[in-house]
Design a binder for these strands. Structure first.
Lengths: 207, 207
DNA sequence: GTCACGAAACTGACCAGTCAGTCATTTTTT
DNA sequence: AAAAAATGACTGACTGGTCAGTTTCGTGAC
């Protein structure tokens, strides 16, 4: 009988599986060797396939690279969103999101490397994927913060946009520093300091 | 008669002048085109000299590049140190340093680009120059913060090292973000938010 | 179950362009 | 006229992308 649909799925399935495995191998190699340093031949040999095959799945080296970065940022956003969803109390939600973010890049340092490579090699060809995803996911956070301001839980003398920027930049800077010179403290200790300072600052408050 | 000493100075002077001008031109081009994208020939033609001449001043492309990064970070450290020295009141000193840091990279975005290029192209050949300089200049800040803790002006429930790290990462992240997607607010507004949040946090404090 | 055959997937030798670094020669300085 | 500085044509190693040829897959006929 016309097992056509079924068949087609199998074919397409195999194709997308391989596509995925190419992206995963390439992501590791691009991170390790850099965009320029990672030859297409190397990616192919890593997978045990011929170089020409890569070009059946991606039009060129750059497209393969962008696919790697995009996969990484998608995974990050998913992890953070899911972590935030496990909490209910407002400040706990913020805490969970921050912790998940740091933990993700801690466990996947190669994705940080890709962000560097992207900026280093395509600075005027492409808006950084990181910020593309950040902005796409910012709406809910903006509303969340605004609500907390309305409830008197967050300061009303600093625009929400500035708070989001500042906390975001703190996380962003921490992610890079951790990769570049390693964490100087345990993830927990670092996380606690960040949360404490972001929420209450470094000054001793008069009671 | 033997104007030897004088002569030598003149000679060495001319040499170091040219060396400096090579570094300055190269810094701009490396930032604009990337380490790989910036050909030695290009640097030479920018200066109106032959490619071979570059090799009389630097052993190779990498050495020239590292000289560029180092010059940038030296300038930054100098600017920040001098700015901090203009203030006397503790929190004003911190404010001046942060403002000078942001203003410096705002006025010299090409140096940020060089930091990216350095990391992207030499991740396992060299500790990032930025952190090399940061650590070399951290001692006084550590002592400064510790004194403020002792005076009850800074919190004593967060280790000084964590405070330095966190504030440093916030500045570092801000510098990158400003370059990557542009500042979303004026330098002043951004600076105010950073200082306010670093010192007092985003939460509304009960009086 | 197996055979035939067209389509899809895969291969890897090859090409064309690139560029850091060299060095024999020329120009400038003292 | 010797030394120092500068030149730029040249080379050797490298690599993204191509494509003519080969292998594998899926399907329908028997």
């Amino acid at each position: 009988m016309p097992a056509k649909p079924n068949d087609k799925v199998t074919r397409a399935d195999r194709r997308s599986k391989r596509r995925r495995s190419i992206i995963e191998a390439a992501a590791r190699l691009f991170a390790e060797l850099g965009f320029t340093g990672c030859e297409m031949e190397r990616v192919a040999s890593e997978l045990g396939i011929a170089k020409g095959t890569l070009y059946l799945y991606f039009p060129g080296k750059q497209d393969l690279f962008f696919a790697c970065v995009d996969l990484g940022m998608q995974q990050m956003q998913t992890v953070v969103r899911e972590a935030a969803a496990t909490a209910s109390e407002p400040f706990e939600i913020i805490a969970c999101a921050i912790r998940a973010y740091l933990a993700f890049f801690d466990a996947n340092p190669h994705y940080v490397e890709l962000l560097i490579q992207e900026r280093a090699n395509f600075k005027d060809r492409k808006r950084p994927t990181y910020f593309e995803h950040r902005d796409a996911n910012r709406g809910p956070w903006r509303k969340f913060y605004a609500d907390l301001v309305a409830q008197g839980k967050l300061r009303d003398d600093i625009p929400v946009e500035r708070m989001l920027d500042t906390v975001g930049n703190l996380m962003y800077g921490t992610m890079f520093t951790n990769l570049f010179i390693g964490r100087s403290a345990s993830l927990d200790e670092q996380f606690n300091a960040i949360l404490e300072i972001a929420l209450r600052g470094i000054t001793r408050q008069r009671q």
